[in-house]
Write a protein that binds this DNA or RNA. Structure first.
Lengths: 349, 349
DNA sequence: TGGACGAAGGAAATCGTTTTCCTTTCTGAG
DNA sequence: CTCAGAAAGGAAAACGATTTCCTTCGTCCA
């Protein structure tokens, strides 16, 4: 009659600790200890085997909800990313997830967009202790950081910086941009343009800084007319180029584009306007992506260690969670420039 | 001395139900009821206001772990996707997440890859009741489906079918392919090729079926030499094209490529081999993506309602969870062919 | 004056673990 | 033969919510 206790594996109900205990004829505390491989446990080998066998047979899996409640740990990390289509974020979340599961954690990915602003998503994530810690990739809003602090949620800023905040792991966009500019200058270009993302955002600011530093290093003047902002759109990038072609100081001979799609849009528009790439205009993407290699001409682009970034961030976060070690900031140097077909020496000797 | 009870909002500890109850001078059952807006509750308006005010002041958020344990519901749905870079999956998870949060759920996204095979990920997801239900997008492995059944986990197959399984919401790849073929045939093409993804996989099979049906509808013969398989690689697609150019029955004048990157690779190789696109070779992508519009020439491509797909799947899953309604299968027709620049009438009259 | 009923809220069980102490039972030394 | 101490395991209290019953008033009517 009481068929709920003798065949839980067959019924729909998942097996619980207690089911195993009853069948094995021991207390559930014993089962719990055996299952978790407690070191200081004294139990006869025979008993241990019996428990393990029964647990396996019933397909017992500890209930993560109960576990989370008791342990005050969900073993889940959260990350919120803007635009999943951006290959850099794809790489980051892939490596972050991998690093997390390697250490027994799960990664909860949330996508921000217009009607799901990032701040709200972070709040959803941490509200009710859904995650043990978060990777912050979308914002460096000091208010958010302060809130995480207050709620005692561990966090790491990934590719973002916040004033007075050291828990920041970033990729060196300024150095990468400096190097891209150096490449172009080395090819003999003297009038370089920058088509950047929004200059109000972190990455936009960093790229502008790198652009200016690169110019200075090459002894070239900075012309504000050759800096344009766009929102990473393909058409938009073309518009920006078109506008710069009639700059008072003359058109640029090379442009640094924020990323591969901006570079692609720039190239497409250049061609439509009768400019050959790379012969009349060189283009380098300040951030590589699959599109760069698939374009014609293939686009020279700067590469960054995003995979390492995700991995380091997760490991720093987990270290902080488990050993309470301070998460130390790091900045990773660019991987290098993938030279493809979109840049050309202006004055071949 | 007992400073843990008077200022939980200031201390690091998150406020609990009990904190609110003690301060408000009521039992926690009352607070719980007020917070959840229980309909059949009789409580004085003044008491209710007081409780609400205190909860707000303390920043009380019910602990989701305790809630999940008691309610036996996590209000979280799981989805595992292969290759995040595929824009179709990006659209699906974006709309799925949006639909989920609109109904008070969260979406747990997991990324499959070589060392994280999908089956294992699904198991991680459902093990320990981490999620209430799953969206299955990577596999139609009957064993997995059977396991979900056995564990009494709700699920919906998204863009996958499994024998004997009706809980499947899909996009009509065969009709879309038929229509792409009809477009090409209407342009006067007589020798059409198919560069598909792996034919052993669901989408590959569907596209081959559509290709054959489209050919038959146009009264054209099917030539096995003009069907190639690739693993969605750009270079690979070019290799497939190159091989088909020397087919015994003559080279194709048009090719249906699995998706935008395959189409792009096909076009790039065609050009390298001296063929103009679209003049000498027309190319249509059987699945649109951002790359299609950014290529030169822009690639004509078939579009599907992936956004709707994700939304419908999530809603069906939640309906099933909450009202125990059977999830009914659906197949969504393609949105249509975006005609761009890569297809050309072979015999302009 | 009694009692019936609704209003307002409280006590305690429960969800499935983990963990802190216990309680037995054995073994071996004196 | 006794007793200390180890070996083997058990009982019960958390963790923080929800929910099923209760209890206590106050009011109204007969």
């Amino acid at each position: 009659m009481n068929d709920s206790s003798d065949a839980p594996a067959r019924s729909g109900r998942a097996a619980r600790l207690d089911d195993v205990a009853v069948i094995a004829g021991v207390a559930k505390s014993t089962v719990s200890r055996v299952m978790s491989g407690e070191a200081t446990l004294s139990v006869r080998a025979e008993t241990r085997q019996r428990i393990l066998a029964i647990a396996a047979e019933l397909g017992y899996q500890p209930d993560s909800r109960a576990r989370a409640l008791r342990l005050r740990r969900t073993h889940t990390l959260g990350i919120v990313v803007p635009e999943i289509d951006n290959p850099a974020f794809g790489t980051i979340i892939r490596s972050a997830q991998k690093a997390a599961v390697a250490r027994g954690y799960s990664l909860f990915i949330s996508l921000a967009d217009k009607d799901q602003p990032d701040g709200e998503l972070y709040r959803r994530l941490v509200a009710g202790s859904r995650v043990d810690g978060v990777l912050v990739t979308t914002t460096s809003d000091p208010a958010l950081v302060a809130e995480l602090r207050r709620r005692a949620i561990s966090y790491v800023l990934v590719n973002r910086e916040s004033p007075g905040e050291t828990a920041s792991i970033i990729v060196d966009y300024v150095d990468g941009t400096v190097r891209a500019v150096a490449h172009l200058a080395g090819l003999g270009h003297r009038r370089l343009a920058l088509i950047s993302g929004p200059l109000g955002q972190y990455t936009g600011r960093k790229r502008l800084e790198g652009f200016r530093r690169g110019l200075a290093a090459a002894g070239l003047p900075f012309d504000p007319d050759l800096v344009a902002e766009c929102n990473y759109g393909w058409e938009e990038a073309g518009d920006a180029l078109a506008a710069m072609l009639s700059a008072p100081g003359g058109p640029p001979t090379a442009v640094c584009a924020a990323n591969a799609v901006v570079a692609s849009g720039t190239i497409a528009r250049a061609r439509r306007l009768g400019l050959a790439v790379p012969d009349d205009l060189s283009v380098v993407a300040l951030l590589d992506g699959p599109l760069a290699a698939m374009s014609a001409p293939a686009i020279t682009a700067m590469q960054y260690p995003f995979e390492e970034l995700g991995r380091l961030a997760v490991n720093a976060l987990i270290d902080n969670l488990e050993d309470d070690t301070e998460v130390a900031g790091r900045t990773l140097p660019p991987l290098g420039l993938a030279e493809r077909e979109s840049t050309y020496a202006i004055d071949p000797l």
